[in-house]
Design a protein around this nucleic acid. Sequence first.
RNA 1: UCCGGGGUAGCUCAAUCGGCAGAGCACCGGCCUGUUAAGCCGUUUGUUGUGGGUUCGAGUCCCACCCCCGGAGCCA
Length: 471
Amino acid sequence: MPSPESPSQVLVADASSGRIPVGETVVVKGWVRSRRESKAGGGLCFVTVHDGSCFDPIQVVARPALANFESEVLHLTTGCSVVVTGTLVESRGKGQATEIQADEVVVVGWVEDPETYPVAPKQHSFEYLREVAHLRPRTNTFGAVTRVRHTLAMSLHRFFDERGFWWVHTPIITANDAEGAGAMFRVSTLDVANGHVDFAQDFFGRETHLTVSGQLNVEAYCLAMSRVYTFGPTFRAENSNTARHLAEFWMVEPEIAFADLSDNADLAEACLKYVVKAVLEERGDDMAFFAERIDAGCIDRLEGLVASEFERMDYRDAVAALTKAVDDSVAFEFPVEWGMDLQSEHERYLTEQLVGRPVVVMNYPKDIKAFYMRINDDGRTVAAMDVLAPGIGEIIGGSQREERLDVLDGRIDELGLDRDAYWWYRDLRRYGTVPHAGFGLGFERTVAYITGMANVRDVIPFPRTPRNADF
RNA sequence: UCCGGGGUAGCUCAAUCGGCAGAGCACCGGCCUGUUAAGCCGUUUGUUGUGGGUUCGAGUCCCACCCCCGGAGCCA
């Protein structure tokens, strides 16, 4: 697509996709991925250039007639930035349909010391690449992850937009002091060097933290706008060191009015299927790479998810199935009994062994769930649900919310929470309350699930984890 | 935080019983070739995570600490 700055500039994606006709003069701007030489036909040099627009780089063919062939082109190394002007032609070699016969190669930026350039054209471990997070987007894998992540985000917005949802920007800084979703990061402008802290003197005149969920706030908008969702960063100060946890991550939280748990599960299933389908359709080149190099079964798994019905399973039945598994001598580390929370091993068994596709487990014991979840008629379970996916475990957690003020107050008291702290949340039950429900979808977990990447630290640009906030 | 594994060249790793610290890749040079994870030959590359201890001698054994990875917990 021509830009005003440079009339013939094209993206690599356009040049290699057939959108630009062969014979056109084009300008490509990007970074060198590799260079190869051949002495054939008087000598020539193949330079592959990527600009992030698609998975495959484009091959530039440079000939000795170029003014800077000896002095510069032959010295290009991985990572150099270049502007190439030339003719788009059908490739004479295998491996690509089209390539650029270069009329001019301008080197914009050299790699200062090729020997120590951190991203060599070879396989690196993901652990190592985390140490060079500013350069890892130049690799195949992280370019692909970045594009899939983008497509997933865009398709989520599209899914909700098409269904009449409003995107609500809930606050990052919160004074909700007991959201019940884990340890929080404090936000303060006070100098705490002397130990004693008087929050009345702090910036907001009270103790504040980074949000652990936009749910409570978005409920207020739900009870006015009917269908709403949040999509933004979330912060947890837990000392979690796993492939599934980040201190800063992104979460999608839809909330629907006049809806129950079943509506909620329907929404979750439709949402996951929609976005997975979108990635399969729009990022075929990147998904082919993930299937080839990262996770051979990822495309089959996704196509299966789109085609199949999610299994709905009551918590009671999940426990029964697990008990039966124990009887059939499946070995679990943790005992199975009604009232327990499902352990990772139990979730994996249900979704991977028993069912082989995503499972929605519903109606958990109230004692292991949050205060805002709606008490069922049996008085001992709540209308909560978890969506479990093979390979990643819990990918969605949600519930119908308690809309009855007296019942909500009872739960707040029962758990030793302070009613006054939830004054505005309780107001929503005093003024035109309605049944409503919602869920949280972990964005990074979803990207990991789709791509087959094993660690959420490798599907977010600059991961924040305990002892790591570099970059 | 708990359990387990690990930290050696720019990267990926090896190093026997405690006995001269090595290979592949990358980089650089040469040869070959419409090449494409190219191939062949050659050069260069070290505070063995940090601090202490044992020993004639420590990458290797002992102690402490730091960091990383995997699993668990917490959860999305």
